[in-house]
Simulated scan of single mutants.
Amino acid sequence: MSIAVERIERLQELARKAVQEGNKARAQRYVRRAKRIAERNRLRLPREFIRFTCDRCETYLIPGTNARVRLQDGHVVSTCDCGEQHRHPYK
């Protein structure tokens, strides 16, 4: 496993902990940094990371804390506090 992948995973963990502690600004910094590392190293972000980050405000989403999650017609709809919605299919 490359160093970049390890750093992205570590930043994901740190972002999750920062949101749980109520430090939204720190979590946004971690998410931005992880995205930048992926860009620089031409890596795809892990699926879990993509599904639990908001594209608009770059916050790490935790259902029930700063995101609302609903099931709708074969999709999971996650709504961030900023109003951005993410739709992901499920079987």
Results as ranks from 00 to 15, higher is better:
Ser2Asp: 11
Arg42His: 11
Pro63Ile: 02
Ile8Glu: 02
Arg47Pro: 12
Phe52His: 12
Tyr30Arg: 02
His75Asn: 10
Gly22Asp: 04
Val76Cys: 08
Val76Ser: 04
Arg47Ser: 15
Asp73Lys: 13
Glu6Val: 05
Arg10Asp: 01
Glu84Cys: 01
Val5Trp: 01
Arg36Glu: 15
Lys24Val: 09
Arg44Met: 02
Val77Arg: 13
Ile3Lys: 10
Ile37Ser: 02
Asn23Gln: 01
Cys57Tyr: 01
Lys91Thr: 10
Ser78Gly: 11
Gly74Lys: 10
Ala27Cys: 08
Tyr60Asn: 07
His88Cys: 00
Val19Leu: 06
Gln85Leu: 09
Ala18Val: 04
Tyr60Met: 12
Leu14Ile: 02
Ala15Gly: 04
Arg40Pro: 01
Glu13Arg: 07
Ala38Asn: 13
Gln20Leu: 14
Val77Thr: 08
Arg44Asp: 10
Arg7Gln: 09
Arg47Met: 15
Arg87Leu: 12
Gly74Ile: 05
Glu13Met: 04
Gln12Glu: 14
Glu48Asp: 15
Asn23His: 09
Gly64Met: 12
Leu43Asn: 04
Ala27Trp: 07
Gly22Pro: 07
Tyr90Ser: 05
Arg47Ala: 15
Pro89Phe: 11
Pro63Ser: 04
Val5Gly: 00
Glu58Asn: 03
Arg33Lys: 13
Thr65His: 13
Ile50Tyr: 05
Glu48Cys: 13
Ile50Ser: 06
Cys54Asp: 06
Cys54Tyr: 01
Thr79Asp: 06
